[in-house]
Every structure is written in C-alpha cells, then in structure tokens.
C-alpha cells in the first residue's frame, strides 16, 4: 500500500471515529429524562423528582448547564487530547474502565473467530464435493449453525455442559476451560456463515483447470484440497471475517451476559441503560476503531493469501 493510500486510509479512519462520536453524543443527549436526576437517583436507589437545589451541584459538576453545542465542543476537545472523559455512573475515567474490561472481550472474540475458521475449514475439506450424502450433511450443518441465535445456543450449552454435566465452569472465569463454551457459542454460528461461502468457492475452484492439471500431475486429493483449492476458497471468508468482527462484538454482549463473563459487553449494556454518555461514546469509538483496523487487516490478509493483490 502506498504512502498516499495509507494517508487516505488514516483520514478515513479519523472521519469514521469523529462521526461515531458525534452521532453517539447527540443521540444520548436526546434521551428522555433529566441526566442530573438520573445520576442522583442512581446513587441513592430512588426514583423521585428532585428539586432545583439538589440538581444544581450535579449540573455544575458535569457541565449540563452549558448549551448542547458547548458540551459537544468540550467533549470533542477532550477527545482530541485523548481524554475520553469520566463515566457519570462509575465515577472513573472511561479509558481506565475500557482498559480493564476489553481484555476478556478480545480474547473471547478472537478465540471465537479461530473456532469458527477451524470448524468451517475442517467441514469444507472433509465434506465438499465428497458425494451427495456427505455434502448434504456438511451444508446442512452449516445452514443450521448459521441460523442459531447466540442467546439460545448459549443457554443450551450452559445448561447441558456446565450445569448438568459439569464439564466446564458455570460462570465466566477467565480460565481456559471457562472460555470454551462462550467461544463456541459465538463461534458456531459464524462457522456456519464462513462455511457456506467457503464451500461455494471451494466447489467452484475444484472445477478449475489448474486443479485438474494438478491431479494429472499425480497430486493426491487431500493435497489438492489443502494446497490449491483452499488457498483460493478462503478469500470470501476472510472478507466476511472483517465484517463479522462488529457482529462478534455484538454477540459478545449477549454471550457475556449469558455466561456472566467479564468484558466490555456487560459494561456497555448497563452504561446504555444509565445514559452514561462518556462511557457509551468511548465504547462506540473503540468498536469503530476496531472495525477500521480489522478491515485494514483484511486487506493485508488478502495480499498475503492472493499474491496477485500485492501489486494492486
């Protein structure tokens, strides 16, 4: 990628981040109810209407008295200095909260992505164009897997393998064995999706002349599948993985909730409920950032897998 290409990419990334911050800020500002009342009532566990004198110090502390534009500029100014602000609800700097929570979520999503690839590749190599029964079984599994909702799959896996069989921990520890069920919950549906596109591509590639010629040179079936066909067949799946990252983060919110697993998802849901603007914006911008980086990685992965792209 040329220097100009990199610069354009970076500018685009900053634009996406700015837009994400702006959008989130204004949406949250439009929310019903009074933010100062919310902060005060949450601290005391009450739901009552507050008097002006009770609200005044909170309004002053968080700058709610300023105009919306003033608050927005103040917020953007902080962002430009790398200051994500302080959470209304958790009374801690947003960057620290995210830093504390992001680790387990990244581990979960990356593991899920690896599981998804492993499952779909094994399935594709083992069943694609291997006769009608095998093919149907393989594609049938993919179709079903792709349609499984995380919340349902997660609860079923939890009850069967953790609560009844006791093979895995019930609550989401960060240990390896505690990672298996959540990552499978997140990975299985994705495996279905990746499997579907990879299989289509794989079958097409197996009909190509160069495959026939490789076979004619005496290469074994497994060799053809893994050395030649796979390399071409994974491209759409890689694109899909880039797109899937955002989806994986969404799924992580639910999976973390089902398995009581630490991570950004739990924090996000409660922050959205509490209208914790700095925290929600921080998470949104992080996700936007992840999205931008992931798509950059997808481009890179393309050039590695498909040498023709290198000169492009």
């Amino acid at each position: 990628m040329s220097a100009r290409g990199v610069a354009v990419r970076l500018l685009g990334a900053i634009g996406v981040l700015w837009a994400a911050a702006t959008f989130t800020f204004f949406v949250q500002t439009l929310l019903p109810g009074d933010r100062a009342t919310l902060i005060l009532n949450q601290e005391s566990g009450q739901t009552i209407k507050r008097t002006a004198s009770e609200l005044a110090p909170i309004n002053a502390k968080y700058g709610f008295d300023d105009s919306i534009v003033g608050q927005y500029l103040h917020y953007l100014g902080g962002l430009a200095r790398g200051d994500l602000g302080s959470s209304y609800q958790l009374h801690e700097p947003v960057a620290r909260i995210i830093g504390d929570q992001i680790g387990p979520t990244i581990v979960l999503t990356v593991t899920a992505l690896l599981f998804a690839w492993a499952i779909s590749l094994v399935l594709t190599i083992a069943t694609a164009k291997r006769g009608r029964v095998r093919s149907t079984l393989g594609s049938g599994f993919e179709t079903i897997a792709a349609g499984l909702p995380h919340y349902w799959l997660g609860v079923v896996l939890l009850v069967v393998f953790a609560i009844d069989l006791k093979w895995f921990p019930v609550e989401g520890e960060t240990s390896l064995s505690g990672l298996v069920l959540p990552a499978l919950t997140l990975g299985i549906p994705l495996a279905g999706f990746i499997g579907q596109v990879t299989r289509d591509e794989f079958e097409k590639v197996l009909d190509q002349p160069f495959v026939t010629s490789a076979r004619a040179r005496g290469m074994g079936d497994l060799g053809v599948r893994t050395r030649h066909a796979l390399r071409h067949a994974v491209l759409p799946g890689i694109t899909l993985s880039g797109w899937a990252l955002g989806a994986l983060f969404s799924g992580a919110v639910i999976v973390e909730s089902v398995f009581a697993r630490p991570g950004i998802g739990q924090v996000l849901v409660s922050a959205a409920n509490a209208r914790d603007i700095p925290l929600v914006s921080g998470v949104v911008m992080l996700l936007a950032f992840v999205y931008v980086v992931a798509n950059l990685l997808v481009d890179l992965a393309y050039t590695v897998v498909d040498p023709r792209m290198r000169t492009a």
Binding site: F23, S250, V253, L268, A272, V280
Partner: peptide, 14 residues
C-alpha cells in the same frame, strides 16, 4: 461506512 462501524446490537441499544 460510519453506520457500518456500529455493531447492530449497539445501534439497537441506542
């Protein structure tokens, strides 16, 4: 692109 950078669930939560 901006819309796309919001995971579905995030947008829905908002």
């Amino acid at each position: 692109e901006v819309l796309f950078s919001f995971p579905v669930l995030m947008l829905s939560l908002l």
